[in-house]
């Protein structure tokens, strides 16, 4: 793995120490863990009494109440669960755009989110799109131990979904980090991401060059993923059209997110640290 990306992961890890992942209430269920769930469980924290029902664990019958009232009553304890974060990273080449800080920002953001998740006592899985979705080796460890974070795929996340979809844990918090720059209808993909998730966050990570059209002049633009080229003369009207196209794309994703109950925000790679408040605004992160 690129040393620069590893360094960025490390930087993100340090940055994430200040934050904790905000776990929505619906996500407080799942595997047994150390965090209080929203249901009764097997922890030592007493929660309530209720009448015995067939199938209840006989160990939790309060025999004292039975002796006093001849009624079978079981003690309910608070469930302790481990919430889960599924971090979905766009592994296409566009996330590694030359002469931009995009790749580093991806790694830094992933490290930050994973560390914030750890602060919130969440487990995590990091999915990288490519020829299908694959988990990063060592993704359950601290970010600096991750491996094979390579942003070199020619396929968009949508295409990767078709080839090999990720196996998300139910009721986990899912965060998609991508530039979202591919054609197609975002609703389909968002629905699949949102399915079974406690919450879905979409972070559009753009380079400054993506957000702002280039200076005037003749330009041969090369698609970083496909290698396609186009020659165009940039003037004020073309620059305006570019800005309109970007706004239209972002609007379509925002509309799709609203339909699917997902939260979306856009970050600029070159100004990542300054825009982390956006992640707090969409209630993804909270100060630790």
């Amino acid at each position: 793995m690129d040393t620069a990306l590893r360094q960025a992961l490390h930087d993100g890890e340090k940055l994430g120490l200040r934050y904790a992942l905000q776990i929505p209430q619906v996500a407080a269920s799942g595997w047994t863990g150390s965090r209080s769930g929203r249901r009764a469980g097997s922890s030592i924290d007493f929660q309530d009494f209720r009448e015995y029902q067939p199938g209840d664990d006989l160990r939790f019958i309060d025999w004292g109440i039975y002796a006093r009232s001849d009624r079978l009553t079981v003690k309910l304890f608070r469930e302790e669960v481990t919430p889960h974060l599924d971090l979905i990273l766009d592994g296409s080449r566009s996330m590694n755009l030359e002469n931009t800080a995009k790749a580093n920002a991806v790694a830094q953001l992933a490290g930050l989110l994973a560390t914030a998740a750890a602060n919130a006592q969440c487990t995590q899985a990091v999915w990288l799109s490519g020829e299908g979705f694959q988990r990063l080796p060592n993704d359950t460890l601290t970010p600096s131990a991750w491996d094979k974070l390579e942003l070199a795929s020619q396929r968009t996340p949508e295409q990767a979904f078709e080839i090999l979809p990720p196996k998300f844990r139910r009721l986990g918090v899912r965060v998609l980090v991508s530039d979202l720059l591919w054609p197609g209808e975002p609703v389909q993909m968002l629905r699949r991401l949102r399915d079974g998730a406690a919450a879905l966050f979409v972070i559009q990570l753009l380079a400054r060059d993506d957000a702002n059209p280039p200076e005037h002049g003749n330009l041969r633009v090369v698609d970083s993923e496909t290698g396609d080229e186009s020659e165009i003369y940039i003037d004020a009207s073309i620059a305006r059209q570019y800005t309109d196209n970007l706004a239209q794309l972002q609007q379509s994703w925002a509309d799709a997110c609203r339909q699917c109950g997902a939260h979306m925000t856009t970050l600029i790679a070159e100004d990542l640290e300054g825009s982390l408040s956006e992640l707090e605004a969409i209630q993804l992160l909270a100060p630790a």
Binding site: S94, L97, E98, N99, K102, D179, L181, W182, P183, L206, A207, D209, D210, P214, L219, R220, V221, V222, D223, S224, E225, T226, D228, S230, I232, Y242, N245, L246, L249
Partner: peptide
């Protein structure tokens, strides 16, 4: 020559 993330905006 300029590499862009995607031609979708162009």
């Amino acid at each position: 020559r300029k590499q862009v993330s995607s031609l979708v905006l162009w």
